[in-house]
């Protein structure tokens, strides 16, 4: 049996900032193993973003705990948590992923610099990652000079740069047209298959859902369905 990378236990989140408390996530148990390619789906407001943020250590659960590869991150001190994210989790957001004043290369390299990777390894890995996401030769472009799809591919490359335990992607294709979206999914799938990288992404897009091998459906903050849909990978 594969290694457990994410273990969410009795996870709940209630927002109390508004006039009425909102239970965004209710008592969620989620167990994700290394090498999974898993989609989080559900209607708008069902709690996908909230759940992903808690798993990624960006948001604190009201109840329950999140264990990442054996480390309980619930209640971790902020700076420690930032460092934990840097070393263990890759993020791809819906948009504005990249630092506009840095080139594609620099955006990727930046993460490794923060990790303290030495120069030769950084340079080599940047080129390798750009190649993997099909952007060789685009390294010195600023984000504003890249298309939306290209930007998201750089974001994926950046997420992988830190050699994370898994990549969280909250609606990574929401701003992309379907061809570009398919292209991004191809790359993610390839990285999943070839390097065994774990991907957890949320989406509304049925064509993206199709590509997942495990689909978790959230409704009103609760897991309604959790099913394996495609043939599992045989290594």
């Amino acid at each position: 049996m594969a290694r457990t990378v994410i273990d969410a236990h009795e996870l709940s989140k209630t927002y109390t900032e508004g006039p009425v408390p909102v239970e965004a996530v209710k008592d969620v148990h989620l167990h994700i193993e290394a090498g999974e390619f898993i989609a989080l789906v559900g209607p708008s407001g069902s709690g996908k973003t909230t759940l992903l943020n808690m798993i990624g250590g960006l948001d604190e659960p009201t109840k329950g705990k999140v264990v990442i590869d054996g480390t309980d991150i619930t209640g971790m001190k902020e700076n420690k948590l930032i460092d934990f994210r840097l070393r263990n989790i890759g993020f791809v957001f819906q948009a504005y992923n990249l630092i506009p004043v840095l080139t594609a290369e620099e955006n990727i390299e930046f993460i490794m610099l923060l990790q303290g990777t030495d120069k030769d390894e950084r340079k080599q890995r940047v080129q390798q990652l750009l190649e993997e996401v099909g952007l060789q030769g685009k390294g010195s472009s600023r984000p504003s000079e890249l298309s939306g799809g290209q930007q998201q591919r750089v974001a994926v490359a950046r997420a992988l740069a830190s050699k994370p335990k898994f990549v969280l992607a909250d609606e990574p294709t929401a701003n992309l047209d379907s061809t570009t979206a398919a292209n991004l999914l191809d790359i993610m799938e390839k990285l999943n298959k070839e390097e065994g990288m774990t991907f957890v992404f949320s989406t509304h897009d049925p064509r993206v859902i199709q590509r997942a091998r495990r689909v978790v459906t959230l409704v009103d903050g609760e897991i309604e369905k959790d099913e394996m849909v495609n043939e599992p990978m045989v290594d």
Partner: peptide, 10 residues
């Protein structure tokens, strides 16, 4: 985004 991906407060 910077803080999410690992730029600490300092």
């Amino acid at each position: 985004v910077l803080m999410s991906v690992g730029l600490n407060k300092t």
